[in-house]
Design a binder for these strands. Sequence first.
DNA 1: CGCATATTTGACCTGGAGGTCAAATATGCC
DNA 2: GGCATATTTGACCTCCAGGTCAAATATGCG
Lengths: 189, 189
Amino acid sequence: MGRPAKFEPAAAVGMAMDVFWRQGYGATSPQGLADELGIGKGSLYNTFDSKHNLFTQALLAYSSLRATALVELLDEPGPVRSRLRAVVEEMTGFGDHRRGCLVVNAIGELAETDAAVTEIGNALFDRIEEAFRATIAYGRSTGELTGHQPPADAASGLLATIIGTSVLVRAGGTSERVQRIVDSAIEAL
Amino acid sequence: MGRPAKFEPAAAVGMAMDVFWRQGYGATSPQGLADELGIGKGSLYNTFDSKHNLFTQALLAYSSLRATALVELLDEPGPVRSRLRAVVEEMTGFGDHRRGCLVVNAIGELAETDAAVTEIGNALFDRIEEAFRATIAYGRSTGELTGHQPPADAASGLLATIIGTSVLVRAGGTSERVQRIVDSAIEAL
DNA sequence: CGCATATTTGACCTGGAGGTCAAATATGCC
DNA sequence: GGCATATTTGACCTCCAGGTCAAATATGCG
């Protein structure tokens, strides 16, 4: 009973994610979000209590998407280097959008004053780093990877690399540069 | 003649730089800036026509500082690896503040909608990358650096690494992780 | 001292941010 | 149909952002 809901909260979070991704937090207004979703501003506030809460949920949804994609790519068959290359290229956000990484953008804008952002960010970073470490260690064990650094070091390096690359992509960096970075990072393993 | 000015514009830009660095662009208000500078809001607008223009000047001043520090560290005597390590540690913003890099933060927040930001950012990135490339090439020529990748690739990789590290630092990443990244990056050369 | 000039200042303005809420609307059920 | 319930909605509220400006203030100079 009751009036049927007009929008699915999960879908709304997805759309909000997109808008925050493009415009950043400060430059995104509740009215704008409501318009983009085709609903009244009141409905937004009934479901998500505040702009900040919606943002947090968008960040979490984003983290989840990224982490899932990461695991999927690393579980694919094939040489370890190819898999890692695929991950680096995917995580870098170089595909279509060129918006970089939402979490990285949020840290740049808000980390100093928003604990939720740093928490979500660090959780995502930890997951990525650990997945890298495990895959690199595996590659070493099979002899596919011949580098000399500890896998944990290489994994941290790879993490920094994809974060940096996502920033460069967002700044409109050339694909040549991005390619050089990816080559350099994968080769070093 | 005329009433004596109460504040030096260059000093004001410096202070503004600091505030933007901490809070980001959107979260910083003209009133707040004026308060922090101990002057009236009107004075601010007499000197800098808009918040955005002041921000742009702050970004330029910041870029200049960073580029200068970079060159200084690379001109120091000593082994190439040490010099590069010093640069990576310095540029990473890991020293005292832990605010990351102002330019990187600005890109995260505004790149999609603010052309001035991407321009300034890319100019800084180009300078850093080129300085890295030249130094790496030199290190190769003297035999100090034994890596196999083209210097341009390694330089791009190092650029991505310091950007990524600045983000991790801003997010409050552990110094252990930062150390792993630096070790990994320098070793790979 | 009185004037011209340069700078400062806070009151003032408009627009929109972020958020609230009472009324309107669309169901299921009796 | 009439009721209870769930959801929607835009008008409404307060506050402050970003910016403007006329008046006030502090100098050098004749």
